[in-house]
Design a protein around this nucleic acid. Sequence first.
DNA 1: ATAGTATTTATAACAATAGTATAAAAAAAT
DNA 2: ATTTTTTTATACTATTGTTATAAATACTAT
Lengths: 278, 278
Amino acid sequence: MNDRKKHVMEIAHTLFVEKGFMETSVQEILEKSGISKGTFYNYFPSKKELLINIFEKIQAETERRRIEVLAGKKKSDKNAFIKQIQVKMEVGMENKLFALFNSVLLSEDEELKKIVQRYHLDELKWLQQRIVDIFGQHVQPYSLDLAVLFYGMLHNALHFSTNADVKIEIDKIITYMLNRIDNMVPSVIASKEQLFDIQLLTRLNSKTLSKRRQKIEKLFHKIDILLSNANGKQKELLLFLKEELQSPVPRKAVIQAVLKELGQKKDLEILVFDVIEE
Amino acid sequence: MNDRKKHVMEIAHTLFVEKGFMETSVQEILEKSGISKGTFYNYFPSKKELLINIFEKIQAETERRRIEVLAGKKKSDKNAFIKQIQVKMEVGMENKLFALFNSVLLSEDEELKKIVQRYHLDELKWLQQRIVDIFGQHVQPYSLDLAVLFYGMLHNALHFSTNADVKIEIDKIITYMLNRIDNMVPSVIASKEQLFDIQLLTRLNSKTLSKRRQKIEKLFHKIDILLSNANGKQKELLLFLKEELQSPVPRKAVIQAVLKELGQKKDLEILVFDVIEE
DNA sequence: ATAGTATTTATAACAATAGTATAAAAAAAT
DNA sequence: ATTTTTTTATACTATTGTTATAAATACTAT
């Protein structure tokens, strides 16, 4: 990605963390990052889309660190599990993710809401799987319940501890919660109490907005921008692209040819291939 | 309270629930409730203050219903406890309280944030006390922990069930959570694990913004409005009021005399007495 | 009923917001 | 060296919350 764009994202990110999303004006981002309004709206279709980009960056970063932690360790290693959660929590705190997410959930913006929901869902799925890793296959039927409980307890405890201005080491809290889950497992299995069916997770997964959909939207926005500055020939090519990309079976070779004819448009190329190479 | 004002609050409330706080413009509230801008800003210092008023109304309502439920029952009655929580949850769902609260927590507005924090704190305190009522005095050292856990599990389960579009009866969820707490109690006591000190609650209590402070702000706003339309004599009286109310020991009789001299200003009188009768 | 007071209305205005439009300048690619 | 792409500067739109103000309406005490 463009270095400049990256820089803008970093500036915006720190501003969002400092003052919140709504409270940060585009104007301020422009001034602090020294770009013009035109450039901003060239980079991002909207302020909202900028926030989404930032979310994605954070998410990728967390995922990377989390995989790193598990490297060479057994799946059933409790300490590795604790460390993994710690990573996530720390990233979340640093970036004030809770606040940002909440601010988004309020915004009643369907697109943003879906993204945050998906984020939570992914987290829950991951937790559920890891709980099975740790506690063994026999907790599987109750693993979604346990994941929901764990997630809720952990977040609320963290929330309270920051609100109450108490500083407890995160890993202590995580360990405590893991012990609680430990307490519950036998009784849940014995009483066969179940709240949520695990199949829910897979069902929900297909429901929520796919990343692919987002990518397509981004691509089309890019094309629109190019269209506004295009001459006759380019216009024809771009309009064809738009059409072809919407077809159920886009002809890759043709698209490639059109892209070549359009000249050096690296950004566009990346986006297009990201969408059609599936 | 003024019937008209009440009506505006109801309209605004449904709008906030339907579309969210930020997404509802003052303009729309004016149109739907058929009042003019001037009147609106006579009733409420700001859109934010209107939201606070609504919060307070909901809170009072919940409290009322909750006390009603316990009437004639023993404190240790588990079913009564479940019912009480259910009341709260139902009110919360009806009014989309979570969403509203979250939207507020994001807004980075210090005043609003304090109010929501206080709300959570009160809830936690209540829960902690009730947990002692139910499980007995010997859980007291761990009752704050248990309250935090219970609150977190319950809310996350509800959150998930609405997100996942699963309909489980609320009382079933509450019962399930209570069983989980049941599981934890012996092990927590045995291992003596403690996360938060109960004394935290009392310490926090004094920290958060008092209702009194809010009332005073409202009163002063009212006086300011009156001042803007006041003639010479009234101005003198009002300015005196303002001064006298800020003194550590306001002279009630004098204030009363001044109020009488000011003529029929029922709203003002109520506010004043609410503040000085302490 | 009348005079005086309080509230409400209409209306205009203000400053700040997100986002659009456009022509000229600068930078990059050919 | 020329064309293409990106960036800038600037003006503009529409909407937001909030303030100001003069006229109209409703209320209260006499």
